[in-house]
């Protein structure tokens, strides 16, 4: 057989097309064998860019010194005179948080308010979720829609609306004075009560929805089995329904507890100056004091406080995923 003439040099365009073709084939081979990795890379990339990088920026700022400059904090890495690379890490901000009783007090108060709100949400949300699950299928969808309906309005607007309801000359006081129950307005707004009301109102759906999702999966024949074995309805609830809805309770409680601890809008608008919560302090350090490093330290400290409940949530979530564990 005569040797084939080398035509690549004679037809350069054909060679380029061949190279493009080869590259495409390689890529599709790669995509076919690595599609799992490629798919999973997308959310990881997202988390990296939008969560992890900002977190490290905040961490960096918390370890810096406040300056009157732009940006208003010292750089982490700077070139000293000559060639030496200098890394400056300052823990003063965190020490400050511990020294000043105000911060510790505020953290504790935030935790107290979010804990009480979570318990209130659970006490109110559990029966609601249970009633929705037991409702006939048609009504169930409407009831679920009603739970989600508030999300169609801005959160901020809804909190503002409470000001109108709770104010000294607001809806409630006007009504009570009109009926003659009181003759002086009762202080409702700018109190801890108003903050509790706001948090419970705003976060209740986050309690109800995971509870609903959990209860919906619950096998109704388990209740029948308990009843058949001689359990009164109340006993059935405490021995069967409640233990099996623990994953839903944990999920709902943490979905309320975690954001409520760092809540800023509700204590600011409904609590005024009377309720101290960490979100408000953070806002103050950042906006009023222009002390970015302390504000960043407050944020990091809040994260540390919430790591424990977040890990708990993770633990229960993965347990939920385990096949056959609860069913």
């Amino acid at each position: 057989m005569p040797p084939r003439p080398d035509t690549a040099g004679l037809f350069p365009r054909a060679g380029a097309a061949q190279a493009w073709h080869n590259w495409r084939r390689h890529f599709s081979d790669f995509a076919q064998t690595h599609w799992r990795e490629l798919t999973i890379a997308v959310p990881y990339l997202w988390l990296l860019v939008f969560f992890l990088v900002p977190f490290f920026i905040v961490l960096k700022i918390s370890l810096a010194e406040s300056l009157i400059a732009s940006p208003p904090f010292s750089p982490l890495i700077e070139w000293a005179e000559g060639e030496a690379l200098r890394i400056r890490i300052i823990f003063d901000n965190f020490a400050w948080l511990l020294e000043d009783e105000l911060y510790v007090q505020t953290y504790l108060n935030s935790l107290k308010i979010s804990t009480v709100s979570t318990v209130l949400c659970l006490l109110i949300g559990y029966p609601i979720a249970y009633a929705i699950v037991r409702a006939p299928p048609g009504a169930r969808h409407i009831l679920l829609l009603l739970i989600i309906l508030p999300f169609w309005t801005s959160f901020l607007l809804r909190v503002y609306a409470w000001i109108g309801i709770l104010a000294d000359r607001g809806t409630i006081n006007n009504f009570l004075m009109w009926t003659g129950v009181i003759d002086q307005p009762v202080r409702l707004l700018y109190s801890e009560f108003a903050v509790y009301l706001g948090i419970v109102y705003s976060y209740l759906p986050f309690m109800i929805l995971p509870l609903y999702a959990n209860m919906e999966k619950l096998d109704a024949t388990l209740r029948e089995a308990a009843s058949d074995l001689g359990a009164h309805p109340a006993t059935t609830f405490f021995t069967v329904t409640l233990p099996l809805t623990v994953p839903g309770i944990v999920a709902g409680a943490l979905l309320v507890f975690i954001p409520a601890t760092g809540e800023f809008v509700i204590p600011d608008l409904l609590g005024g100056g009377n309720v101290l919560m960490i979100g408000k302090v953070l806002y103050g350090e950042f906006n009023a004091n222009h002390d970015w490093p302390v504000a960043a330290a407050v944020a990091i400290a809040l994260l540390v406080v919430l790591v424990a409940p977040m890990m708990l949530y993770q633990h229960f979530q993965s347990r939920e995923m385990e096949p056959g564990k609860w069913r």
Partner: peptide, 20 residues
């Protein structure tokens, strides 16, 4: 009579064992 007051017990098709 409600189920919990009957001298009757049932074996369910799905068995309905308490998973917890």
């Amino acid at each position: 009579a409600p189920p919990y007051q009957r001298p009757v017990n049932m074996m369910f098709q799905s068995y309905a064992l308490f998973p917890h």
